[in-house]
Simulated scan of single mutants.
Amino acid sequence: MGLKEEFQEHAEKARTLPNTTTNESLLIIYGLYKQATVGPINTSRPGIFNQRDRAKWDAWKAVESKSQEEAMSDYIAKIKQLLEEAAAAE
């Protein structure tokens, strides 16, 4: 299985993460997903009154130096880690 196929598979698995997944973890996978699918950030930072979008923008900005392949690999690893943690907590 190629990297892109594995990435798509884990993107589907990400939808099954439990509601107890921390916002910090969700922001990390959001940033990695955007970097892997879009590439370097291409929008301006949202204003101070839009905290949710601002946090998402910051998460994407934090990983903008990664290549799309690196971001895919890191995304897959993070999803695996979160799914293992969720299974252990059950």
Rank of each mutant, 00 (worst) to 15 (best):
L26D: 14
L82I: 03
G31L: 03
Y30G: 08
D74L: 12
Q35D: 13
A71Q: 11
T16H: 05
E5V: 08
I76R: 00
I28K: 14
T22W: 00
Q8V: 05
S73Y: 12
G2P: 08
M1T: 13
A87K: 13
D58W: 12
Q68D: 09
E85F: 05
V38Y: 08
W60A: 11
N19S: 11
A71F: 15
E69I: 12
N23E: 11
T21S: 03
L26Q: 07
S25W: 05
R45K: 15
I41Y: 05
A14F: 01
K78G: 03
N23A: 09
M1R: 02
T37K: 12
A77R: 08
E69R: 12
K78S: 10
K13Q: 03
N42S: 10
S73N: 15
Q81Y: 13
T21W: 02
Q51R: 15
L27H: 10
L82D: 00
I41T: 10
S44Q: 14
A59S: 15
R54Y: 04
I79N: 07
E24H: 06
T21A: 03
A11M: 11
G31E: 05
N19H: 04
A62H: 08
R45W: 06
L32P: 06
I76G: 07
T22M: 00
A11P: 03
Q35G: 06
Q68T: 14
A59H: 00
P18Q: 07
N50T: 12
P40S: 14
L3D: 06
A71R: 13
Q8S: 06
E69F: 08
F7P: 07
R15H: 10
A59Y: 05
K66R: 15
K61F: 12
L26P: 02
I28Y: 03
T16S: 10
A86F: 01
D58I: 12
K34D: 12
S25F: 01
T43N: 15
Q81G: 07
D53W: 10
E85Q: 15
Q68A: 04
L32T: 01
T43C: 14
Q81C: 08
E12P: 01
V63A: 13
K4T: 13
R54I: 01
N50C: 03
K56H: 12
G47H: 01
A89H: 08
F49I: 06
P18R: 00
L83A: 02
M1F: 07
A59T: 01
G2I: 11
L3E: 12
Q35L: 14
S67F: 12
L17Y: 00
A62R: 11
E70H: 04
Y30I: 01
E69M: 07
Q35S: 14
H10K: 11
T20I: 09
A77M: 06
K61D: 13
Q8R: 13
V63M: 08
A36N: 12
A86D: 05
K13G: 03
E12M: 04
E5M: 04
Q35Y: 04
D74E: 15
L27I: 02
S67L: 07
A77G: 11
W60P: 02
T16C: 03
I29D: 04
R15Y: 09
Q8F: 09
T20F: 02
